[in-house]
Design a protein around this nucleic acid. Structure first.
Lengths: 233, 233
DNA sequence: GCATATTTGTCCGTATGTATA
DNA sequence: CTATACATACGGACAAATATG
């Protein structure tokens, strides 16, 4: 019986009951994903197969399948013959994530003019809902929801591409970025200054000014990136 | 003892000796990936765990890890309680792949002006090498190499983004597209007409005319997409 | 629609190789 | 260098789901 060294593993026992019915590996991945994206698993932590397998009541085979799912999402890194670790992001990663975001989000906006009216309408609606959710959350002082709404805003921007693959790429990028936000001193209020930018972008896309929106968003992302990179240095 | 029904599995035995030293699952994935991208495994084929595991001399657990790797690359699809199948692309997939390509490749070109001189130079060199490789392969009548060079050309275009994540996304898209090319009547000569377009794009990027290159590429991709979609209908 | 056979999903025990204290 | 811990990989087992007759 291995002795648990750092203490966070025991808490998994409580989540074991929450495992519903689906692929066991997927459910295990869901539990771990939540802990990682919520910052309750520090980057760099090694995830022992035996320890976690025992805590969640699944075999190592199943657990390894769950690890692979999360490694695919870049939330874990798998080092051969060494084990899996919670992803630890460097300044270079932040730079690259924002480079990717610029291409995806600005590309989606520039593609919007080629989409049909109704598709554009649903995307604009999604953007509007995200903006309003962020503003009301900020009014209520609920900074966690402000962050969630900001994520939803950028996911909605990606909708203009009308491409499932763009949507998925965007989801992965945002999931990785959650790891970044946790190293911020005040992740709660990080997103708040961008509420105005989001509102401005909404007016652009609602008016069909996609090129202006793209340029505005590029500047927006530049600012956010440099803000984050300084934190990493 | 299950009787092999379709006959292609036995050939795997010959490849078993070629398995070098790395993660077993990765090596197995390499073998299967080659067979899939070369079109020797028809889309829709179900990959039996027991059959292939025996043919390659690996356990079911290890094989399942290899399946997961390839499912991540979208070369296989995993259906719960049913097994894994070689990915079968629909017309919608072709459309989406080209939508994603437009955003990635044109986005990379539009980002090029912001990169430093040396990075741009290496990207231009990579593009030039791909163009020349394609032209000499075409002169030799080697259509397989023309296709390979065309893939390398677009991978080189992605270099202008200066982003590892863009590179990887591009790799995955091109790997998926290989599945599409195999359903063409004459995949050998499919890429040949684009040699001129590639050469023209090279002159653009060599001259630093990235916006012009992006627009030219967009039209290029539109044409290729509609050509492929008609084949699917 | 039912009974049967096949195949996957999951778990366990174990042997071997690799990394690290 | 040795010892320990751990990941890798194998093979067997059984239940559950699916496919087949």
């Amino acid at each position: 019986m291995p002795v648990t060294t750092n203490g966070w593993v025991e808490e998994l026992g409580a989540e074991r009951a929450a495992l519903g019915r689906a692929s066991t590996a997927r459910r295990v991945a869901d539990v771990l994903r939540t802990r990682i994206t919520e910052g309750r698993l520090a980057p760099g932590t090694r995830l022992s197969e035996e320890e976690i397998g025992a805590a969640l009541g699944v075999s190592r085979n199943t657990l390894r399948e769950a690890f692979r799912l999360l490694a695919h999402e870049r939330l874990l890194v798998h080092e051969f013959n060494r084990g899996v670790f919670v992803r630890k992001l460097e300044a270079d990663d932040v730079h690259d994530l924002y480079a990717f975001r610029r291409i995806l989000e600005c590309g989606a906006l520039r593609h919007a003019h080629a989409t049909d009216e109704s598709a554009r309408g649903t995307a604009v609606d999604a953007v509007r809902r995200a903006v309003e959710a962020g503003e009301s959350a900020a009014a209520a002082g609920n900074w966690v929801d402000v962050g969630t709404a900001n994520m939803a805003f950028h996911q909605a921007i990606a909708l203009f591409a009308q491409s499932p693959r763009v949507d998925e790429a965007m989801r992965h990028v945002l999931a990785e970025l959650r790891l970044v936000f946790h190293v911020m001193a005040a992740p709660q209020t990080f997103h708040e200054p961008y509420l105005n930018d989001n509102r401005r972008l909404l007016t652009h896309v609602a008016a069909g000014e996609f090129e202006a929106a793209a340029q505005s968003l590029a500047a927006y992302l530049d600012a956010a990136e440099s803000q984050l990179v300084t934190v990493f240095a």
